[in-house]
Nucleic acid binder design. Structure first.
Lengths: 329, 329
DNA sequence: TCTATTGGTTGGAGCGCTCTAACGATGTAA
DNA sequence: TTACATCGTTAGAGCGCTCCAACCAATAGA
């Protein structure tokens, strides 16, 4: 496992170590003849530059640190996918950590990432206090995804949850619905904006809002529907797809047909919603785009192109499928 | 962004750089008095060791390279989660890359990971030829997940797909089924073993096999069912959960009830299967365990505890839910 | 002819750390 | 007393690389 160094390549090619370095970095001021000799020697020895030594010597880093609660959650996985795409295009690599939504563990994860002196840090929905984020931002550019911040040193990328729900309500209203209920996400992430968006949209249409307490699970969706059954609305806007699927099965159990008797809209456009069997009308968050924009924001700071913070608020879009239709007369 | 070095801490604490190094590494042969002084100085300066410099100087690495096709796939995301857990416990960090199931891109990803001189490499279902893997294994310990290998230098962690399907078939037979069909996964990963497992299990029970060509999607599951409708079996073993859900909806459209008329078993135990609305009997792969075992295998090699390859073949388990029952008389 | 200029090449310092060998101080045994 | 460990500490070399200043032709300009 002992790998050749620049020195070895230089000796074999009959040049200096500095020249090998120039070739490896693709410098134009090297004669074709020497370049070929170096490349040949490197090839023969199976040499490839040592990223850490390079980074140490050049005092630059091509690593982006990423902290995520857990990869288990497809939302984060897709954001990381987006980060990875941009990073790869620009010759950066990702070092990934999990924080598990526990402040102490997140702090350790942050410290670990910073010990690599990354070019930047992307924190996906961190739960640590703002002070910890400010401290991290003093060491490297930071971008926050799915969490807002007032810190001038950090950029943010968020979903416009209010707008997403507004899209859903507008869609239902345009179909002719007037009695539209919302099953909310309780204290879950983004549940607040979604609830506010619902209330605002209903008010904008001059309709009476009706919010049922819920959470981000199918069980909660089913429970909420049983609560609504005393006086069923013609449409339900759920806090997310899982909740919506629970609502649909509870409606079916009660003998109500979707969308003939009740229309249902979800949120998140998970793979679940796309299943033909479910075919759920839902609000799509451009998750991959979150990651891409986060990476771009970091790289802009890395390149020194920008000092002022940027606040991305991404527009969700409505994906109309088979669970919404006009209300029954 | 210019951070203090050991030299700064040493100067402030009035000791040598070497002593600071000893304190940072938790050496016992440092007087309590000096240790406290160093720790205090480090704290005041906000010092934390530079992982890359440390790695370069000590010629050791606390990085594990992970190559994954895409994080999008929840299977990989959970394996990475398992890897991360073990890595974190042992003070290792993960550097993650995507290969996109394209040999050329995988090769680049591999090279990139190796440039960090990681302590080990975990490759999740790579598609590059064995020669590339052997080449990588010459540079660092390699563990393959969801791909087998004969190379003595690499460890492997795989699911026993044959056994998983056997579990499903045995379950159905014990319920009284005899006409059991299998919708296969075509050329998909693990589709072969699953198909073989089905054929072997049917043979073991003296039953006549019936395989319908499919793939890992709900659309394919629905299509396969329509093909089976001419002479419906009493049970279907699908190649995965998505396929099973497609099968279920096609059965419903044909007026057949699950499990009263036809039982259905999936594979993978995705979050989908757990939904009450779906409540799919399925085969569970211990995905997190895949990652944990892969990390353990690497760390054993890193510590020089083992030279011979290890071949983990994990036992899947059956999760019985609501889509299976005795056949109709 | 002499001085600039240019392009390719090189030695050497240094990035922030670890590790080895050696140091002085103290205690212990002969 | 001398010799010898033992303990805490330190100087210095070196990990594999980048970067700067210097260098050496070779060519161009005066």
């Amino acid at each position: 496992m002992v790998r050749p160094t620049m020195e070895d390549v230089a000796a074999r090619a009959g040049v200096s170590r500095a020249l090998v370095s120039l070739v490896m970095r693709g410098s134009p001021r090297v004669s074709e003849q020497r370049r070929a000799a170096v490349l040949k020697a490197a090839e023969e020895l199976g040499y490839s530059p040592h990223a850490m030594a390079r980074s140490l010597a050049s005092r630059t880093s091509h690593l982006l640190g990423v902290m995520v609660s857990d990869l288990h959650n497809p939302f984060f996985a897709e954001v990381v996918d987006g980060l990875d795409e941009v990073a790869r295009e620009r010759g950066f690599d990702l070092i990934v950590n999990t924080g598990g939504r526990e402040p102490a563990r997140e702090r350790r994860a942050l410290a670990s990432l910073l010990s690599f002196r990354p070019a930047g840090l992307a924190l996906l929905s961190p739960v640590v206090p703002s002070a910890d984020i400010a401290r991290a931002a003093a060491q490297a550019p930071v971008v926050l995804v799915a969490r807002s911040s007032r810190l001038a040193a950090v950029d943010t990328v968020n979903d416009d949850g209010e707008r997403g729900i507004t899209l859903a309500v507008d869609h239902l209203v345009s179909l002719g619905h007037r009695r539209i209920a919302h099953v909310d996400g309780g204290g879950g992430a983004q549940a607040g904006p979604r609830r506010r968006g619902y209330l605002a949209a209903m008010a904008a249409h001059g309709l009476v809002p009706r919010v049922v307490a819920g959470e981000y699970t199918d069980v909660a969706g089913a429970r909420a529907v049983r609560e609504l059954l005393a006086d069923p609305p013609t449409a339900i806007v759920s806090c997310n797809d899982f909740n919506a699927v629970g609502a649909i099965s509870a409606l079916a159990e009660a003998g109500l047909r979707v969308p003939r008797d009740v229309s249902v809209v979800g949120y998140d456009n998970t793979s679940l919603a796309a299943l033909r069997h479910v075919s759920l009308t839902t609000v799509d968050q451009p998750r991959n785009e979150f990651g891409r924009l986060a990476a771009e924001a970091l790289l802009q700071r890395v390149r020194g192109e920008r000092q002022e913070p940027v606040r991305h608020l991404l527009r969700p879009s409505l994906v109309v499928r088979a669970t919404t239709g006009p209300p029954r007369r």
